[in-house]
Design a protein around this nucleic acid. Sequence first.
DNA 1: CGGGGCTCCTGTGCGC
DNA 2: TGCGCACAGGAGCCCC
Length: 276
Amino acid sequence: MPELPEVETVRRQMAAALGGRKVIRAEVLYPKAIRPLRPAEFVKKVTGATIRGVDRRAKLLLLHLTNGNSLVVHLKMTGRLLLKDDAAEPNQATEIIFDLSGPNKFFYDDIRRFGFVKLMPTKNIADYLEKKEGFGPEPLAASFTVSVFKNLLRKKPRSKIKPLLMDPTFIAGVGNIYAQEACFCAKILPSRPAASLTDDERRRLYRCLRNILRDALKHRGSSVDAYLDLFGRPGEFVPKLKVYDRAGKPCPRCRAFIQKITLAGRGTSFCPNCQL
DNA sequence: CGGGGCTCCTGTGCGC
DNA sequence: TGCGCACAGGAGCCCC
């Protein structure tokens, strides 16, 4: 599942590889993936435009075009943005093909088809992100200080901490993998109400969350499920995951068996011995 | 306000 | 060996 480290990896790669490239041709193979336009309109508004820059907010990728439009992409669980050579052919998962200037095609694939590509005027992006989506702070931003984190926790005293970390309106970009890893690192049970965390635990969780996201980014993310980077390479962080998808295996810290429960409908693994 | 359930969709992995 | 089915999962939405 692409979360902040995976999406940011793809953003950096796209910014370097796609900037200045022109869309020569576009084809929509799965119309439900695009919003809100019909394929003909989508193709018309994209064709001939040059990719000016790539931003990220939460798990959304923002591809800005020179014609005043932007593409807003959410990869959800199995979306992939792939830069391939001109001879590449679509497969079962391919939803959109962009034929670029130079020797490349740019594919949007999504096995489970939950992701989307929205086309909207660039000038509407800021409002869309902050008003409609209402994203919380970027956890790796310099402005996201420990006191900002503590103030946020005070606003949601009754929420369970792990689902709270995954709430995009609370903090942006954290999903099921890194929320579990952060709780493990901070030695906090995922089901603890936010208000029950001591000052020391709040500080630990803040540091753990930021360190894990940074470390995962350094390793180009975790390839669980279907994630691949822009060049089709898997991320290298999976061997460093301590609890995610490790139910029944020994805790790397204390050797107790990792346990799995469901919180807010999401699988959640933790060590019942050293997470308190 | 918080929590639960439903929805989208397909590959995986289980039980028989 | 093969079939069929439950299940996972981000996040919006509805309901209580």
